[in-house]
Design a protein around this nucleic acid. Sequence first.
DNA 1: CGGTTACTTGATCGAGCTCAATTAGTGTGG
DNA 2: CCACACTAATTGAGCTCGATCAAGTAACCG
Lengths: 250, 250
Amino acid sequence: MSAHIHRIFDRKALKVSCSNCTLSELCLPHNLDQREISQLESAVDIKRPIQKGEHLYSAGDPFESLFAVRSGSFKTYLLTPEGDEQITGFNLPGDLLGLDGIDTGSHTVSAIALETTTVCELPYTQLDTLCSEIPGLRLHMMRIASREISDDHNMLLLLGKMTAEERLASFLLSLSNRLKKRGYSATDFNLTMPRHDLANYLGLAVETISRLFSRFQEDDLLRVNRRNIHIADLQRLQAITTHTSCPKPA
Amino acid sequence: MSAHIHRIFDRKALKVSCSNCTLSELCLPHNLDQREISQLESAVDIKRPIQKGEHLYSAGDPFESLFAVRSGSFKTYLLTPEGDEQITGFNLPGDLLGLDGIDTGSHTVSAIALETTTVCELPYTQLDTLCSEIPGLRLHMMRIASREISDDHNMLLLLGKMTAEERLASFLLSLSNRLKKRGYSATDFNLTMPRHDLANYLGLAVETISRLFSRFQEDDLLRVNRRNIHIADLQRLQAITTHTSCPKPA
DNA sequence: CGGTTACTTGATCGAGCTCAATTAGTGTGG
DNA sequence: CCACACTAATTGAGCTCGATCAAGTAACCG
């Protein structure tokens, strides 16, 4: 199944096949039988690709569906009354977006594509109906919500307690782990977001991020070229986040 | 069963009556019929009171139940490897605790009582079974999770973008609103947490909180006596959080 | 190319932290 | 009922981390 559905594809034209999707490990509840998976597949739509800079949804939009990222990436953010933005997360393939909208029936954050991105749309009423029939799916949904809550708590810790250095190290390690889970390299990757977004997300200034990248590079922790990152010493990077001392190899 | 039931309270002795509970507005799904409410009641246990400083659960404990606060209050927090704490929330009557534990099957934060507190225990497997039968309850649960996610996003904004002044003003207004929803005064209340916890939650030093209380009092925004707070000017407090200028009344 | 945006680097500044001292509660046991 | 110890809160003085301001450079794109 191609990741890049061209717009000539009618929304329903392409049969969704969750069972064959490379993301099923992340996206699918583990304990569904074949019949249950087909039920789920019938509820899922593949949308046309979202271009870089295009919104998947905006804060205030009526909530109708959840979205699973198939390829590409998003950032989600919210705006203050004064108009400045706080990024609340970055979403990689296999991530689910939109849970924030369930409570009020309209989205509380905006989601914008950082690159050309494809998603599966899961209309919520259909998903909810399936949840009554498939206990494994119900648990899966609650787990995803639960994980998002825990992740957010970790971000509170990052923003509330960590130094600039610790924040960037934490971010890189977390991204590294997420990429690894998805089958990519844990040590070589490209950031899909500009420095500006990274700084915003970590509660820092762009200049601070830039200086930290330079410093980490001088310390042989990273090799950085623009958006391209090579993690040269995972252990010492880890040590930064835990205040543990870790000898620099000669 | 539970190891922490006080002997005078037989767990099932006290019949739970959600329908008569003063918190039902907050705690119960609105669209349940009488039969569904009794089903829910049969799943709920009232636990013995939790004393100030006592844990309801700790990070790492196996997750078995959600808890609804009946009276009193909790703080939830997580610890870094180095042992310093980040408070992730304060919980008032009607609040639900424990969602963070669903994903991994063990709690990721600890919950400790800030005063003598009573809770209803909702064993998760029973709750989940009811969710398959009662669509309204299922939606209610997802809504609560969704709200927690949105609330956490707002905390990210607070920690990432706001000044000390804005953080405290936001906190007081948010608390004021929550108390109002629960039928208490929106302008006169007692904080159940020490300055230390407040500072920790808001990502500030205790001294900063103290100085801000003094300053807000000089500006006739608040009247503060230890933990007792009187909000003298809700409008101007609101104005602080939105950078809006608001004339100080003569 | 030329214009725009992304990123880096340097110099300076300030909000809020840390350190330190004081005061005011809050129990606890004689 | 009061001394004592202990914790909670306030207030002051000085410092620091990261923000802001200001250039300059490098990539990207029509």
